[in-house]
């Protein structure tokens, strides 16, 4: 009992903002159909999102000998492998726009692609791997896949640094077009979040998607211009290809980074941006629709 007394002073200081707040009433009842997004609540819990991202990043490289170096090594290794296999063996090198090194050109695509692929594979699994959270505590569930994307964003920031080094190494001089990377991040994030929301919700309900996700990531990479140039698609079909958000976005990333070597394709990019927004909105609302059942089936 003496312990309880010892801590009581700190407790006495506690009468907090809670009592000052107007008595809000929360009504809990079955809500049929589609459910809108509670932005107020998301804002109230914003610190939790920060903590979840921070946990993801912090935990990822715990007990690894190389630590954060992996964030650099993983994309560099993929670039090396792609360069060797597709650049050399598949002679992609010969299809490069004038004077562009395949490694630089490939890495420009890997920047957005790695982010998207992480959101798809890890984000898709995120709810299932956090089921003990879903069944034991309430918080905005949207944060679970969002936090994965947040973690991927941190990795991407590191990759930007790697990109700068690679460009310097191959003496690729960036133009002012680099600044367009920032607005390009918006559709990239929307598409990645949308896909993460959709597949995380699907995976909770239908665990089959755990297996589907594995090859979906691979298949998606091959329909996106990661290892080949966007111009491989015949011009009259490019608008169709652009419904894949990554088609226009990856092409845009290359234009932004490689400036004078790679022209912009405004129509393709616009279609991809539109489809990113559509994917985000659909993913978000599908997630909200299924969210109420998560705790029962997780």
């Amino acid at each position: 009992m003496s312990n309880a007394i010892a801590i009581s002073p700190s407790v006495d200081v506690e009468p907090t903002a809670v009592s000052e707040a107007p008595p809000q009433e929360r009504v809990i009842r079955a809500r049929p159909g589609w459910i809108s997004v509670d932005w107020d609540e998301l804002w109230q819990f914003r610190e939790l999102l920060y903590f979840l991202v921070w946990r993801d990043v912090k935990v990822r490289y715990k007990q690894t000998a190389l630590g954060v170096a992996w964030a650099v090594l993983v994309p560099v290794f993929s670039m090396v492998i792609f360069t060797v296999i597709f650049g050399n063996f598949a002679h992609m090198k010969n299809d490069m726009p004038n004077g562009v090194n395949y490694s630089v050109w490939n890495f420009a695509a890997l920047l957005p692609w790695t982010f998207f692929a992480t959101a798809l594979s890890l984000g898709g699994q995120s709810l299932v791997s956090q089921q003990q959270l879903l069944t034991k505590i309430y918080f905005p569930r949207l944060f679970v896949p969002t936090a994965v994307a947040g973690g991927a964003l941190v990795d991407m920031a590191i990759s930007y640094g790697v990109m700068a080094i690679i460009m310097a190494w191959y003496r690729v001089v960036p133009t002012w077009g680099v600044l367009t990377l920032l607005p390009l991040m918006v559709p990239l994030c929307l598409a990645s979040l949308g896909i993460a929301y959709m597949f995380s919700a699907l995976t909770v309900t239908y665990r089959d998607f755990r297996f589907v996700l594995q090859f979906l990531v691979q298949a998606w990479m091959f329909v996106s211009p990661v290892i080949y140039p966007a111009s491989f698609v015949p011009p009259r079909f490019q608008w169709i290809a652009s419904f894949n958000p990554m088609y226009g976005i990856i092409d845009g990333f290359r234009s932004a980074l490689l400036g004078r070597y790679q022209p912009w394709h405004p129509l393709n990019l616009s279609i991809s941006i539109a489809s990113s927004i559509a994917l985000f909105v659909f993913g978000l609302f599908y997630f909200r629709k299924t969210e109420r059942r998560f705790a029962d089936i997780a």
Binding site: V18, V27, I28, A30, L133, K136, I137, A295
Partner: peptide, 26 residues
């Protein structure tokens, strides 16, 4: 605790809720 939705009926909570259904969640 809003973890799961009821099938019927409703509950009104007039205050900030915290629930502790398990020790060490998260």
């Amino acid at each position: 605790s809003s973890i799961t939705e009821p099938t019927e009926g409703c509950a009104r909570l007039r205050g900030r809720v915290a629930s502790l259904l398990e020790v060490g969640t998260g």
